[in-house]
């Protein structure tokens, strides 16, 4: 069964029927937003059942859209959190990526500015490496980007998508060794993105993230994970019900090959390790349950099936 990421938008009235339907079909609701009288569900559902969800949702005013970034966590990395980079473009991009379903985290480096002095700390690198990919938002000068990237990319293991003012082709030629993705014509700007050409640039960033993450998924598909992250999310929600009381918008953040559980590691790690996915198969057997560098959260990294000899 191939699960497809979608966004369902509809009225609050009788939306429970949609939630039940998705569960019955074997899908998962990754995130649910209730905004006044509207509800937005980010879900993974079986590809063949999308028409059924559309049919059931239609009388309730529901719409289904494909959202390729549902179930991913993206780091939006800016050189700093100063007026030079915030709120535009960093917040605009982070917010736009969320609309397509990704969980985006904005990471402002402590010393990411200046081409000679730019650097990242061990903590920053480790936090970035906990994401599915990192979008680096750099500036307007090619020579600065080339020199800075050498320092900023050091120690980053996840795919990097580089954005800057020079064209994507110029960036592609200039960055050596290459990074996973390039988006040109972005750079530093100090006004809100609302014109058509500016929104087109945001769309280009989303398209590049989707492309890079699709490649990552293909890579993972060659040696499939022992369990789907969405399934482990459902298991954790069922067996560690304390997570349902967490007020964060995504108490369990689903990633391509893991999860971030927003519970204290010291208190809950063992319970998560011993949670049973199927009879005799615990999360601890098919995944590494690690302390996250983000607050005191728990990071679950699912092992490939070749390592565990289990697919659940």
């Amino acid at each position: 069964m191939i699960l497809v990421p979608i966004t369902y938008k509809g009225g609050v009235y009788r939306h429970d029927e949609i939630v039940d339907l998705i569960a019955d079909l074997g899908g998962y609701v990754i995130q649910k937003h209730v905004l006044a009288t509207e509800v937005v569900l980010l879900c993974l559902v079986p590809r063949d059942d999308i028409p059924l969800i559309e049919r059931v949702g239609k009388p309730l005013g529901g719409e289904v859209q494909l959202s390729p970034l549902v179930g991913t966590e993206v780091a939006i990395v800016t050189p700093s959190l100063s007026i030079h980079h915030l709120p535009h473009p960093a917040c605009d991009i982070a917010e736009y990526v969320r609309r397509i379903g990704a969980k985006s985290n904005m990471i402002g480096l402590a010393r990411g500015y200046g081409k000679r002095v730019a650097q990242t700390s061990a903590e920053e690198r480790e936090i970035i490496n906990e994401h599915d990919c990192a979008v680096f938002l750099l500036g307007n000068f090619e020579s600065c980007i080339v020199e800075k990237m050498e320092a900023l990319r050091r120690g980053i293991d996840v795919p990097i998508i580089l954005t800057g003012k020079p064209d994507a082709d110029v960036l592609r030629r200039a960055i050596d060794p290459p990074v996973a993705g390039y988006v040109g014509n972005v750079g530093r700007f100090m006004h809100r993105t609302k014109e058509a050409d500016e929104l087109a640039r945001l769309d280009a960033i989303v398209a590049e993230i989707v492309r890079v993450l699709d490649l990552r998924r293909e890579e993972i598909a060659k040696d499939p994970l022992s369990a789907s992250p969405a399934r482990l999310m459902a298991v954790i929600q069922e067996q560690v019900p304390e997570v349902l009381e967490v007020t964060s918008p995504t108490p369990v953040t689903v990633q391509i090959a893991g999860l971030r559980v927003k519970l204290p590691y010291e208190e809950f790690a063992d319970r998560i390790r011993s949670a049973e996915v199927e009879e005799g198969v615990t999360i601890g057997r098919i995944a590494d349950v690690l302390p996250s560098r983000m607050r005191d959260y728990i990071l679950v990294r699912i092992k490939p099936s070749s390592e565990t000899d289990v697919v659940v």
């Binding site: 307007n140 000068f141 090619e142 020579s143 003012k165 020079p166 064209d167 110029v170 750079g187 530093r188 700007f189 100090m190 006004h191």
Partner: peptide, 13 residues
């Protein structure tokens, strides 16, 4: 600026 591509960006900024 010697980098012509950045000139318009800085005019806008």
């Amino acid at each position: 600026s010697p980098e012509a591509g950045a000139v318009q960006a800085y005019i806008d900024i």
